[in-house]
Computed example of a mutant assay.
Amino acid sequence: MAQCEANYWLLLKLTPGFEARDSWQFAVEQGASSWEMRIEVTERMRYTTTLRVSRVDDTGSDWLQSPQLLVRLYHDAALAEVLAWEGHRRLEVRYDYPNQKMYQSDEKSQFNRFLGEWLHHCLKNGHSLHEIILS
């Protein structure tokens, strides 16, 4: 739960004007190279917002996909939880191991931790590709 709470606040830092906008894009420096990250609102409800968090990759490679996560923000609880990644849906909290899909026993926890590390990296090394207007 602590990771989900931290992810919520990190996402809000990365998405200025959250109530009025539906997409954000960042250039992120990583050593000598850089890449882009996109955050898009896919659904807005009264107490939740669903986001697609993805790395924009124009390499054209068919065998290596860039990460793409579907994340739900729970505004009343101030939590952000990874719902799905690259078409894999309905993550269980725990899996028996071994299992048919060969998920790790703590797969959902690992994805939430990955999201947190990814967002931290973007805050530390990224810059917005859009003009930010704070009112």
Rank of each mutant, 00 (worst) to 15 (best):
Q3S: 13
Q3V: 15
C4T: 14
C4N: 11
E5S: 14
A6Q: 06
A6K: 11
A6D: 11
Y8H: 12
L10D: 13
L10P: 00
L11N: 12
L12G: 07
T15F: 05
P16S: 07
G17N: 12
F18I: 15
E19C: 04
A20E: 14
S23C: 12
Q25K: 15
F26T: 00
A27T: 08
A27Y: 13
V28K: 00
V28R: 03
Q30P: 03
S33L: 14
I39T: 02
E40L: 11
E40N: 15
R44W: 09
R44H: 13
M45V: 07
T48P: 06
T48Y: 13
T49N: 10
S54Q: 14
S54Y: 10
D57W: 01
T59Y: 07
L64F: 03
Q65N: 03
S66C: 05
P67D: 04
L70S: 10
R72H: 10
L73E: 03
A77I: 04
A78P: 00
L79S: 04
A80K: 04
V82E: 05
L83N: 05
L83Y: 05
A84L: 02
W85S: 02
W85V: 05
G87C: 09
G87W: 05
R89M: 12
R90L: 12
Q100P: 14
M102D: 08
Q104S: 13
Q104V: 02
K108I: 00
K108W: 06
Q110N: 06
Q110K: 09
F111A: 01
N112R: 06
R113Q: 13
F114V: 03
F114L: 09
L115Y: 00
G116F: 04
G116Q: 11
L119A: 14
H121M: 07
L123T: 03
K124P: 01
G126R: 03
G126T: 01
H127N: 03
S128R: 02
L129M: 00
L129N: 07
I132P: 00
I132S: 04
L134P: 00
